[in-house]
Design a binder for these strands. Structure first.
Length: 637
DNA sequence: AAAAAAC
C-alpha cells in the first residue's frame, strides 16, 4: 500500500470545499466539542467576533473573505505578480511529486540507498581508516549486529556510517559533517556501544555490584542542544543496546529529576544529556565524568556557538572529564562553520575531518521553493498553501507540515489562528513546559495535528517521519539554521518540499539562500538577486567553495598537513553534474522530481522583473568592495 | 534580536 504526499493535481480540486470526514476517522479539534480543547491553552476565539468562528473563509480564493484581516488594497497587483506565478509553480511541484513520490503507508525503517549512491565524500587527517560497504565487514559484536539487522532492519550502512564507523572504531577523534537525515545518530552510537562492550570486563562491571552506587560513572557521554533531540537519541540508543547489557540513561531539563536520578542508581554506561541538567546532576555528585572514554556532541556546531559554548566548555574542560587524547571525541553536524571548527579543535586530538555530501546544501531530495510574501500577506499565503494541500487530499493521509516561525509568541499566535481557520495545528517552543512540548511533538508525529508550528527548538536533529513539507514562514537569519530546518523533511532518502516566505526583511540571507538552492541544482528565483545586498552570505561558513564544509585545517594553515582524500565516484563537479547523467536527469531515481524538467517549467514563470545587470556581479564574486566585516561590525539592521 | 539550555 502506498500513497503520494500530494495525490491530485492542485488545479482540479482547489475550489472543492474541504471535507473533514472522508475515509479517515480523524476528528479535527475545531469540530469537536468546543469545550474540550485538545490543548492546554484557552483560545482567544471566545473573545473574537462571531464571524471568526468555524467554517469561515475556506473557499473562494480568499478574496475579500476570511482571515479577519482580508486582503489589503493592492492585493490583485501582488497576486498577479507573486501569488499567481507561485501557484503555477506550486502546481508544477505538486505534479512532480505526484509522478514519482511513493511512500510506504507504514512508517518505514527502510532507507532509500539509491538516493545516496554517488554522494561526494571528503576526508582529511592522517591515516584515515578505509570505509566499509556493509555492516558485516565491521566487527560490532554479535548482539549489536543482531539489533542492527533484525531489530532496526538496517541492511546497509549510509555513507556517513560507512566512513565514520571505521574511524571511530579505530579510536580516532572525528569531526563529521553529513547531510540531514542521513543516519548520524547510528554513526556515533554503534562505535560507542561497541567500545563500551569491550571496556566492560567482568571485574569492572562487578565493581558496583551488590550495593547502590550513589554516583554513576558513564563510559560515554552524548550531548545534544535540545531536550527533544536528547530524548530521541536516548530512544535510538536504547534500541541499539537491546540485550547487549549496555545501560543507557538520559538527563535533560524540564522533566522531574527524581526519576532520572533513580535511573542512574542501576549504573550508567552511556549517558545522553542536555548541558544544563547534566551540570546539575554532576554538581549533585550523582554523575561523574571521570571514566568517560567516549564523548559525542550531536549538532556540534550548535553546541559550540556563542550562547552555548561556555556551558560545553565547562562540562568538557572543568568537570573531571578526561582530556583529549585520554578520551575519544566525536563531533557531528550537518553544518560546520569554520570558526566553530576552530573552537572545536580544542576538544579534539589529532582528529579526522569527514564530510559527506555537499554540506549546507542539505540534500537534493528536498525541493526548495522561495516565494515573495510581505509580512502582512504571510498568513493568507500560508492558508492558501495549506488549503491546496488539503484539497489534494494529503491531510488524513499522514503527510505532515512543519511551519517555522521566528519567535515563541509568533508560534503561539500562528497556532491559534490556524486552529481558528480550521487547520488542526499545534506548536512547540521553549516557553512551553516540557510535557506540553513533548505532547505537541507527539500529536504532530502521530498525525492528530498534522501541522506543527515551531521555533528553532525543532530545527535540529528531530527525526519525524512523513514530514512532507517544511514552510519557513519566517526565514531564519543564518543559512545554517535554514539548512537544518528544511532537513526535517527529505529524510532517509525520501523526498520533501521546502517553501520559504521571503521579503525584503530577509535580505541578509538572500545571497546564501540563492547559492544554496543553486548548489542543489534547483531554480533560484530571479527576483531573489534584487535582495542580495552583499552583506552576509555563505561566506561566513563555507567560503565560495562549491564543496562546502571543508576542513579548516587544509584551507588555512599547513601546520597540520592534512591529507585530503576524495571518495567521490562521480566527480560531482557542480558544472558537469547535470550532464553526467544525461537524459535521465540529474536526480536520483527515487527522489520524486526531475529538476531539469522542473527548472524548465518554472523558468517560463517570471516572479518579478529580472534583476538589474549590476546585481549579477554579486554572484560568486564576493561583492567586490563590499566590506563583509564592516557590515557585521555594524550589527544587523 | 531570537532561540536554546537547570532549579
Amino acid at each position: 500500500m502506498s500513497y503520494s504526499y500530494f495525490s491530485d493535481s492542485y488545479a482540479a480540486t482547489a475550489e472543492k470545499p474541504v471535507r473533514h470526514s472522508g475515509r479517515s476517522n480523524y476528528n479535527p479539534p475545531h469540530l469537536r466539542d468546543q469545550n474540550t480543547r485538545p490543548f492546554g491553552y484557552s483560545y482567544r476565539s471566545e473573545s473574537q467576533p462571531p464571524n471568526n468562528g468555524r467554517g469561515r473563509g475556506r473557499r473562494g480564493g480568499g478574496r475579500g473573505g476570511g482571515g479577519g484581516r482580508g486582503f489589503v488594497p493592492g492585493y490583485s497587483e501582488l497576486d498577479r505578480q507573486f501569488r499567481e506565478p507561485y501557484r503555477r509553480t506550486y502546481d508544477t511541484v505538486v505534479e512532480k511529486l505526484n509522478e514519482v513520490e511513493v511512500v510506504d503507508e507504514k512508517p518505514s525503517m527502510g532507507i532509500n540507498f539509491d538516493a545516496y549512491e554517488d554522494i561526494p565524500v571528503e576526508t582529511s587527517g592522517s591515516d584515515v581508516p578505509k570505509p566499509v560497504n556493509t555492516f558485516a565487514e565491521i566487527d560490532l559484536g554479535e548482539a549489536l549486529n543482531d539489533n542492527i539487522r533484525n531489530r532496526c532492519k538496517y541492511v546497509k550502512p549510509t555513507p556517513i556510517q560507512r566512513h565514520a564507523i571505521p574511524v571511530a572504531l579505530a579510536g580516532r577523534d572525528l569531526m563529521a559533517c553529513a547531510q540531514t537525515g542521513s543516519g548520524k545518530t547510528a554513526a556515533f552510537c554503534f562505535p560507542i556501544i561497541c567500545g563500551v562492550l569491550n571496556l566492560q570486563s567482568p571485574p569492572e562491571a562487578a565493581a558496583g555490584f551488590g550495593r547502590r552506587e550513589m554516583t554513576a560513572y558513564p563510559l560515554a557521554l552524548v550531548l545534544s542542544p535540545t531536550r527533544e533531540l536528547c530524548c530521541q537519541i536516548h530512544e535510538e540508543a536504547k534500541k541499539f543496546c537491546y540485550q547487549t547489557g549496555v545501560k543507557v540513561a538520559v538527563a535533560y531539563g524540564g522533566a522531574p529529576i527524581g526519576h532520572q536520578l533513580r535511573s542512574f542508581e542501576k549504573g550508567v554506561d552511556i549517558l545522553v544529556a542536555t548541558p544544563g541538567r547534566l551540570t546539575d546532576v554532576i554538581e549533585r555528585s550523582r554523575v561523574s565524568l571521570k571514566r568517560v572514554k567516549y564523548l559525542a556532541l550531536d549538532e556540534a556546531d550548535r553546541m559550540l556557538d556563542m550562547g552555548f559554548e561556555p556551558q560545553i566548555r565547562k562540562i568538557v574542560e572543568c568537570l573531571d572529564m578526561p582530556p583529549p587524547g585520554r578520551r575519544q571525541t566525536m563531533l557531528f553536524s550537518a553544518t560546520f562553520p569554520e570558526q566553530i571548527q576552530r573552537l572545536a579543535s580544542d576538544f579534539l586530538s589529532n582528529y579526522i575531518f569527514l564530510s559527506v555530501g555537499r554540506v549546507g546544501s542539505s540534500t537534493d531530495l528536498i525541493l526548495q521553493k522561495v516565494v515573495f510574501v510581505d509580512d502582512m500577506e504571510k498568513r493568507d499565503c500560508l492558508r492558501n498553501l495549506l488549503r491546496d494541500q488539503k484539497a489534494n487530499g494529503n491531510l488524513g493521509k499522514n503527510a505532515l507540515t512543519l511551519v517555522f516561525v521566528e519567535t515563541k509568541r509568533g508560534a503561539d499566535s500562528l497556532e491559534r489562528w490556524l486552529c481558528q481557520i480550521g487547520f488542526p495545528a499545534t506548536a512547540i517552543h521553549g516557553d512551553k513546559v516540557q510535557y506540553e512540548r513533548e505532547r505537541a511533538l507527539n500529536i504532530f508525529k502521530n498525525g492528530v495535528t498534522p501541522i506543527l508550528v515551531a521555533t528553532d527548538v525543532a530545527s535540529r536533529g528531530l527525526d519525524i517521519p512523513r514530514v512532507a513539507h517544511v514552510i519557513n514562514f519566517d526565514l531564519p537569519k543564518d543559512i545554517d539554521s535554514y539548512v537544518h530546518r528544511i532537513g526535517r523533511t527529505g529524510r532517509a532518502g525520501k523526498s520533501g518540499l521546502a517553501t520559504a516566505f521571503f521579503n525584503a526583511k530577509n535580505s541578509s540571507i538572500a545571497k546564501a539562500l540563492s547559492e544554496l538552492i543553486k548548489e542543489a541544482h534547483q531554480e533560484s528565483p530571479s527576483w531573489l538577486a534584487q535582495y542580495v545586498d552583499g552583506s552576509s552570505s555563505g561566506d561566513r561558513c563555507y567560503g565560495s567553495s562549491k564543496f562546502g564544509g571543508r576542513d579548516y585545517r587544509s584551507s588555512n594553515s599547513n601546520s597540520y598537513a592534512a591529507d585530503n582524500n576524495s571518495y567521490s565516484t562521480t566527480g560531482y563537479a557542480a558544472a558537469d553534474y547535470g550532464g553526467a547523467n544525461g537524459g535521465s536527469g540529474y536526480d536520483h531515481p527515487s527522489s520524486g522530481y526531475d529538476t531539469a524538467d522542473y527548472g524548465g517549467a518554472s523558468g517560463s514563470v517570471e516572479y518579478a522583473p529580472p534583476p538589474p545587470a549590476e546585481f549579477s556581479d554579486c554572484y560568486g564574486g564576493g561583492g567586490g568592495g563590499h566590506g563583509y566585516e564592516s557590515i557585521v561590525a555594524g550589527g544587523w539592521e
